[in-house]
Amino acid sequence: MGKGLSVLVAALAIVLALSVLVGISFGTVTLPLGTVWRVVLSHLGIGDVVKGGDDQIIWQFRTPRVLLAAVVGGGLAVAGTALQVLARNPLADPYVLGVSSGASFGAVLAVLLGSSALGGLGISGAAFAGATITLILVFTLAQRAGRIGPARLVLAGVAVSYLTTALTSLVQLQVNPLELRGTMFWMLGSFAGAGWDDLRIPTVVMVLTTAWLVVRGRWMNVMTTGDDTASGLGVDTNRFRIELLVAASLLTATAVAVAGGIGFVGLLVPHMTRLVVGPDHRRVLPVAALGGASFMVLVDLLSRVFDRPNEYPVGIFTAVLGAPFFLALMRRASKGTA
């Protein structure tokens, strides 16, 4: 099974590289393509150094933002894949466990109170803390006698997510209109303002977690056959479920902390991947990671050029593209169980 996968992964890597180049080439401000290429090449050590505003727009603003979109898109796709295995539910995604809404709550709280009130956490830090606290809460609610049931996990996630969403709305009504726009943008997700510094932690988390899950691909396959069968085949299902939960949370919390709440990528990409490469997670994970990265880069580009010079939150576009897919999937799933 190795050869076909290598070809597909190589092809997707090329698609991703092209998406990144396209993402860097177009944007709110129109620059000649020749300039864009010269700047990128100069920073890769080829050709002359380009000075001035063009260099700054392309290398300090666009490039890190496009790369962050790739990292976050890939991370969310991998997180969704893990959560679907963990919850044994095709409709699971990072939103279902309330991680995204918990992070949003942390972020708007930081906006309202100022970061000093939260012990010097910035908005990202507050979002990460919100995601982590939500997760511990969901996790505690979902377990019973030391075991985590998939159905209980989803229900606890949905309940907690409603609660944090309500609290977020409450806080939003207290902030002034200018800040409100900022929190809105953040809740729907955006890569605007990303710099090179924002890229480091998400990249490390994303690469290490994905690699770890690929190593666990066989166990993920076995998990889809049911808890009893998985136990029989030698997987400690409860421990592995916790492992998957930690991996998915780490990915989601990191992504939400840097880019806000971006829905549907974690749902859409794993399913499209499974349609193409089948159910084997050793294939699904790398393909979903690369596919999610390209998808997010292109959606981010759409958010910038849709109504120039205005920028829109990416969450709007992922939802517009993702909702019909979600509904189609739901209709198919309910047909299957009826």
Binding site: T225, G226, D228, G232, G278, P279
Partner: peptide, 15 residues
């Protein structure tokens, strides 16, 4: 040491 044929072995038939 032991292998199992369970009753829940119907979940994923895509393999």
């Amino acid at each position: 040491r032991r292998a199992v044929v369970t009753q829940d072995a119907t979940a994923d038939l895509d393999f």
